Simulated assay, not measured.
Amino acid sequence: MRVDAIYEKGIVVEFVYSPLFEMFCALHVLSNSQHHIHRDKWVEKINSLMTENMKNDINRFSLITDEYLIIMDFCNDFKECSDLNILSALDFLDDVPFYKINGVFKNYNKRITNIYYRELLRFLRDFYIKIFQNELKYIEPIIIRELKRKLTLGKDKGIFYLIDSIHSRIEVLEDEIVFYKFKEFRVKLVDLKYININVSTFISPHLLLGQGKNSINLTVLIELGNNEDKCPKDLEKKLKALGDATRLRILSEINPIGKSTQELSNSLNISEAAVSKALKLLLEAKLVNKIRRGNYIIYSLNSIEIDYLPYNIYEYIN
């Protein structure tokens, strides 16, 4: 739903409310609740309402959609996903040519089978009808009010003041906008023609950024509740796992080539039991991966989690 728009210095800024996008954000939180402690009470409530099958589906589809971050791009690439209510948007996605759906996944070096995609749509309908429909009645007025407040701010102070205020890791410079994520993203103002701004009550502390050829998509965060005294549990697990010399040595040993428990025991000159204990903590923190090769389990470095660690620390302290 398009709430309103501002035109300034050749740039159109649209303020859009997409209920489907907000549902994807909710699913992201449910799939990675340890990182979104501001919603821990909500997660606890929703978990009490869901069947075990639905919980399993959330985790199953989380793996192929990168915790639902990939399918959030549907709302950027297909404007119908923002213009329509959730069920109508899902009906629209059911009719989109499948190569276009996989085009979205291809941007993340992934693909989804047609059968699996139809199962995903079935699950999304089920989750909306049984769970999210009632939640939306509460959060929808909050989102629309916040969009209107941001619209007023943009009209009063200008669009660049508005963009700079959206997140502490956005910086508007004289000729470009810089987004500080796991790496810097820079958008030249001369190339920018369109900015889409939406709102979510779920995705804090993320800085969500969608980029097109001449456009960017930004999400305003709304905090419901106060958990400033808490550290994200997944970040806490990672830092605790790294706070030990043996576990750090294991990470060094398995990079870049994975090793088995026996190999680690020999190279580090410690017992296999001690290695297994250390690997258990590293696995729980998602810092290592494991795969079976014949009779052995091979452990390798989860380089993506390692790469994102400085970003997650910076995200929390800011």
Rank of each mutant, 00 (worst) to 15 (best):
Y117W: 14
L248G: 02
N266E: 15
L153P: 00
Y17K: 08
E140N: 11
T261K: 14
L281A: 05
Q133P: 00
S31N: 09
D164M: 03
E22G: 00
N134S: 10
L268K: 11
R60T: 13
I131A: 04
S276H: 02
R149L: 06
I250K: 04
D156W: 05
K100W: 12
K55A: 00
A274D: 15
N134P: 01
V13E: 03
T219R: 04
F15H: 07
L192R: 08
N56I: 06
P232Y: 05
S276P: 00
L120K: 10
C75F: 04
R118S: 10
S271P: 07
A278W: 08
N109F: 13
P205N: 11
M54W: 06
D91Q: 08
L309K: 04
D307N: 09
N32F: 07
I298R: 09
L63M: 13
F127T: 03
E228T: 11
M72I: 08
K277Y: 13
I58M: 08
K9E: 15
A278D: 12
S48D: 14
A245N: 08
I143N: 07
L282W: 02
I177P: 02
I222S: 02
W42E: 12
V178C: 08
E14C: 00
K240N: 11
A26V: 01
L283M: 11
L207D: 07
S267I: 14
I46T: 13
L162K: 09
V178L: 13
D91R: 12
N53P: 03
T65N: 12
E272G: 12
R118G: 00
L84W: 11
F98Y: 14
M72K: 14
L121A: 02
N312T: 07
I112M: 09
L264Q: 06
I129M: 12
V29H: 09
R149Q: 12
D307C: 02
H36S: 01
L218F: 10
D126F: 00
E263M: 07
Y311N: 13
K286L: 07
I317V: 13
I37Q: 12
N227E: 15
L189A: 03
D94A: 00
T246V: 15
L218A: 04
E184R: 12
V172A: 01
I250G: 01
M1E: 15
E315H: 01
M1L: 10
K79S: 14
E135R: 03
K280M: 10
Y296Q: 15
L282E: 06
H35G: 10
K188V: 07
F92P: 05
G158V: 03
L235N: 10
L221A: 11
E52G: 03
Y116P: 03
E171Y: 07
G258Q: 04
S265K: 08
I86G: 01
C25A: 14
H28V: 02
K286G: 05
I115P: 02
K55E: 09
I291F: 12
E284S: 11
L282N: 02
Y99M: 04
R247N: 09
L189F: 06
I6E: 13
